[in-house]
Design a protein around this nucleic acid. Structure first.
Length: 645
RNA sequence: GCUGAUUUAGCUCAGUCGGUAGAGCGUUUCCCUCGUAAAGAAAAGGUCGCCAGUUCGAUUCUGGCAAUCAGCACCA
């Protein structure tokens, strides 16, 4: 027997008898042997007692590697299970996982674990950790495990997913579980962990299945890392747009007047208006014709479009007008823009026809999904539809993508990835059934991305009901993935609404429709920006750009008003704080309100027709002439500067 | 929608083992007239989420509903 192990640096080591990953690590260096947590063997995560007996590529993982954290957390999850099972012998376990956010274990409901019981369980875990209890890695025949878990409602099903006749299982005392890539050989290393929350989660992630309880927590190798992570979790709250929205008086949602129906206060409305003007200008410059269409539409239009068949759960119930007419609050405005297209006979010479609208949509979101401006029941969509000939699809697609990238640049959106969203062919309830069209459009979309040489992930079951999409997924400041922009190819609706244009040949042809959104909805986009900027909006977006504060009310109010008026006249959003309060008090408020520029005006400034500038987040006092300040802020606004970030 | 927790003044939160409530911040008024992150005083402000039930009496106990939060499912 002889085989060789290839290490990450390319070097090879030959062996003539089997050895464990741990032995290999020791063989390389004693210190590495001590630090080894697990290994990647041909890309697969394996524990330190894994037997090497044939040619393989091996990378030893120590606690400096990200994957080591997953091993640690999986071990913590396993220990939690063992301890919880001891405390509640009748408890069953569902799925468990460990990743960059921590770990979780699903348990069944018959024996609810309350959040108040977590400290006791933590204590029991700590006891085991202190004792450094051994975790035994065993290969068990699948049939033995099936026998052991024969009364378990979940483990049997999970066992079916395990490949082969033997299963990698782990034992701590008489507790056994499986489904881990690799665990530590001993509980002693799980020093710094915390159980965090108890929440519901569906068994196997299906809402038709019973709901289990998910206990989640996190673990680190270093105490400082755990502390930093707990602090990070706390600080996330400070970025929450709901908190900032209230503190800065941007918007409110009040169940008394309707859950999920936000009210935009003047400051929030200002931010939104600036964005709306920006995006309309941008789109008009890119060849879009902006329109307004009604929020109500005859239900028949949504029957024709397929919304009524495939999207009804997300729609408000129709209004019965009593004379046979049924009106529907629109959930999307593709049918509205189709009506605009159909209003005239269209020639190939006009194509592409680009229709855009900041249109208000209503969708009946499930109560549990509502969240501030992030998920609402009334939203203004940055929507647009372009109607093109078949041979224009690629160019139009590239043009839209360029527009999106231009906008991202101005808003400094850099953390995003592309996702091609396809239908799930098995889900006939959700998607139009027309295999040929789906194949064609999905292939065309992928081809367009490949031609542009862009990287993407593919996701089945994420398409719109009428066609596949390119989704641009951004990361929010709170770490959630969300769809910011989308480009969707649609062969279905032109067919259903019998859209035509007259070709060069004088015959009628069918156009292709491209649905696209740049910044998604105004609601979600403002929520996103609020979190990214932590409420300190860049000057071009800030609801109040300049706060003017007189040193002495009697002596300097007139000059403060004069400066404010001059700024307002030039189109800047300036306010003068003429309340009877101390200077320090007003400065403080101007800072907590995150206003980009605070101007303090006293005798010196009045005499010299100057201002004293304190930019947000600093304690600078910069004296300059009013003219110079105006030049500075003008430059700041026009550059879409992010310096407040 | 589901599971759990929560809901008391504009905000953050105490409190009442059943006898209708408090603090800090904010607001208003008075006072102070001030050079870069909170001067001082007084006052106003609450159907104790909503609807039932039990009780002599419910903010407190019980039930239902709604909303909010965490997560799941869904999703822009």
């Amino acid at each position: 027997m002889s085989f060789s192990i290839t290490l990450p640096d390319g070097s090879k080591r030959d062996f003539d008898k089997a050895l464990t990953v741990g032995d290999l690590a020791h063989n390389i260096a004693t210190s590495l042997g001590k630090a080894a947590v697990a290994a990647k063997v041909d890309g697969q995560l394996e524990p330190v007692d894994y037997q090497l007996n044939k040619n393989a590529k091996v990378a030893i993982i120590t606690n400096k590697d990200d994957e080591a954290l997953n091993v640690l957390r999986a071990t913590a999850a396993f220990l939690f299970e063992a301890v919880a099972k001891k405390a509640y012998p009748e408890l069953h376990f569902g799925e468990h996982a460990a990743d960059k956010d921590g770990f979780y274990v699903d348990t069944d409901k018959t024996n609810q674990i309350k959040i108040s019981e977590l400290p006791q369980l933590e204590k029991a875990m700590k006891k085991s950790i202190k004792n450094g209890e051994k975790i035994e890695h065993v290969q068990v025949a699948k049939s033995d495990l099936e026998a052991e878990f024969k009364d378990d409602p979940y483990k049997g099903a999970l066992l079916k997913n395990e490949k082969g006749d033997t299963v990698d299982a782990y034992k701590l005392g008489d507790f056994t579980d499986f489904g881990f890539d690799a665990l530590l050989p001993n509980t002693g290393k799980i020093k710094y962990f915390k159980l965090l929350t108890v929440a519901g989660a569906y068994w196997m992630g299906k809402s038709s299945n019973p709901m289990l309880q998910r206990i989640s927590g996190t673990a680190f190798f270093k105490e400082s890392a755990l502390k930093a992570d707990l602090k990070r979790r706390d600080e996330i709250k400070e970025r929450d747009h709901r908190t900032i929205g209230r503190d800065l008086d941007l918007f409110f949602v009040d169940p008394k007047v309707g859950a999920g129906l936000p009210y935009w206060m003047p400051k929030g409305a200002t931010i939104r208006r600036v964005i709306e003007r920006y995006i309309i200008d941008k789109e008009v410059a890119d060849g879009y014709q902006h329109v307004y269409t009604p929020v109500l539409m005859n239900l028949n239009a949504y029957k024709t479009s397929g919304h009524w068949a495939h999207y009804r759960d997300d729609m408000f119930p129709p209004m019965d007008m009593g004379d046979g007419e049924m009106l529907e609050l629109r959930p999307m405005n593709c049918p509205s823009h189709i009506e605009i297209y159909k209003h005239h006979i269209r020639s190939y010479r006009e194509l592409p026809i680009r229709i855009a609208e900041l249109g208000m949509m209503h969708r009946y979101e499930k109560s549990g999904a509502l969240s501030g401006l992030q998920r609402v029941r009334e939203m203004t969509l940055n929507d647009g539809h372009t109607f093109v000939a078949l041979d224009q699809v690629q160019d139009e697609f590239a043009k839209i993508l360029k527009l999106i990238m231009d906008v991202y640049k101005d808003f400094d959106i850099t953390d995003y990835h592309f996702r091609l969203s396809y239908r799930d062919p098995k889900n006939t309830q959700k998607y139009f059934s027309n295999d040929e069209m789906w194949e064609k459009s999905q292939k065309m979309l992928k081809g367009a991305m490949d031609d542009l040489g862009l990287d993407y992930v593919e996701a089945e079951g994420e398409a719109a009901f009428y066609g596949p999409k390119l989704d641009i997924q951004t990361k929010t400041a709170l770490g959630n993935d969300e769809t910011m922009s989308t480009i969707q190819l649609d062969f279905m609706l032109p067919e259903r609404f019998n859209l035509t244009y007259v070709g060069k040949d004088g015959e009628e042809h069918r156009p292709v429709m491209i649905h696209r959104g740049i910044v998604g909805t105004m609601e979600r986009f403002v929520a996103y920006l609020t979190e990214i900027y932590k409420g300190a909006f860049p000057t071009w977006l800030a609801p109040i750009q300049v706060e003017v504060i007189p040193v002495n009310l009697d002596a300097h109010s007139d000059y403060a008003k004069k400066v404010r008026d001059e700024l307002n006249k030039r189109g800047f959003r300036a306010e003068a704080d003429l309340r009877n309060e101390k200077l320090g008090y007003k400065i403080r408020e101007s800072q907590t309100q995150k206003i980009p520029y605070t101007l303090v005006l006293g005798d010196k400034e009045m005499k010299a027709n100057s201002v004293n500038v304190r930019p947000y987040g600093t304690d600078d006092e910069i004296a300059k002439s009013l003219d110079d300040f105006i030049k500075e802020i003008d430059k700041d606004v026009n550059s879409y500067s992010r310096k407040n970030k």
